[in-house]
């Protein structure tokens, strides 16, 4: 049941995206995109990576 601890990683996307006060600014911009936009797009990629880690770490033999 130690595997369950991996699920805690999935709390991070909620903390990262549901508090706009953390990222509601224009600087630093990336390729001309204000921080507000590229930060949230970066969370899409980060969430995919976090999910991939959790999917792998908590897999079961019957998950073929």
């Amino acid at each position: 049941m130690r595997k369950r601890a991996w699920y805690a990683l999935l709390v991070l996307p909620f903390v990262g995206t549901l508090f706009p006060q953390l990222y509601n600014r224009a600087e630093p911009a990336l390729f001309g995109l204000p921080f507000f936009y590229w930060y949230q797009l970066a969370w899409v990629i980060l969430t995919t990576l976090l999910l991939a880690v959790v999917v792998y770490a908590t897999r079961r033999p019957d998950d073929a």
Partner: peptide
């Protein structure tokens, strides 16, 4: 403007929920 971008965090956090 900016508030329309809510679709991005929406379509991000939907997946941890879906996964579980």
């Amino acid at each position: 403007g900016a508030i329309g971008f809510f679709a991005v965090p929406y379509a991000t956090i939907a997946y941890p929920i879906a996964f579980v």
